[in-house]
Nucleic acid binder design. Structure first.
Lengths: 145, 145
DNA sequence: GATTCTGTGTCAGAATATTGACATGAGTCA
DNA sequence: TGACTCATGTCAATATTCTGACACAGAATC
């Protein structure tokens, strides 16, 4: 089962990578754009958690995107150390193009599934995530018993 | 949905990584051991495909494992250039220890799912994989329509 | 008010994976 | 036989990511 999950994720990433290459975007870069599209004003650390990479990796991604003029970050933090990023017009435009490609990949991935199956898959994955995230979910008596 | 898949795969990998660290094994290394356990006599390229990495990466993994005495490869190829790897006794032992840990992680991941849900998830993932693998599955008329 | 704790951004180094390339062996076909 | 194609193993260089570490800002605690 774990193997299946890995295989599916690998296939998805490969397909996304192939599509996004036309826009000179990597998967983490697209993830960053997508997250900022859904909700602007996200800090580096928040983006890193959302894209499942470390703060350091996201920092490099962010710099690259900033250098390409796709997003802006205030030079000084308004509060704390967080410098929330924001998409520029060019960033929004590129994200739109990319999202079309990614959406097509997703639809192809789900093309053989009915709506009910899709919903079941969604909830199943969600259960898997919460199962792995909460090591104490099955009681404090000990996970192995 | 793609996000959920990525999240689940990331969580699984993280959990596996944390467990396998005790045995000084990385996830690709474990994948290699697992593949060889299921079927011995696998070449470098076959292992690479099975573990979703490139031949070059698997080559490094294989060398590391060979240096640790966990597997052996003939110095000369019997036929072609393929030098099929084989687990040593130490390799089988370490794989056994690792598989116990990984199995526990998988069970925890699936702990909140019923057998039926698990089966549904399995088939759903399988459909996703085949959907991404066969770009012409929905007919040669064009994927976008 | 001082201390601790948590969260954040960043630097440096190492580990890892990938792209690109090349040589070798096997099968195919004219 | 010779040319072609395909798969494999490996090398080199590059790119990406992670681990470890440090400094800073705010909240919590005493």
């Amino acid at each position: 089962m774990g193997y299946l999950l890995k295989q599916a994720a690998s296939a998805l990433r490969g397909a996304m990578d192939a599509e996004l290459r036309a826009l000179e975007l990597s998967v983490p870069q697209y993830s960053c754009l997508e997250l900022l599209h859904q909700r602007e004003e996200l800090s580096n650390a928040e983006l890193a958690r959302g894209a499942f990479v470390t703060r350091q990796s996201m920092n490099l991604v962010l710099r690259g995107l900033e250098k390409r003029g796709l997003l802006t970050r205030p030079t000084t933090a308004a509060t704390g150390r967080a410098r929330p990023a924001e998409l520029t017009e060019a960033g929004r435009e590129l994200h739109h193009q990319a999202s079309v490609l990614v959406r097509a990949v997703e639809q192809q991935m789900l093309s053989a599934l009915t709506a009910a199956q899709e919903d079941s898959l969604r909830s199943g994955l969600h259960e898997c995530i919460t199962g792995l995230a909460d090591p104490d979910a099955n009681g404090p008596g000990g996970p192995s018993l």
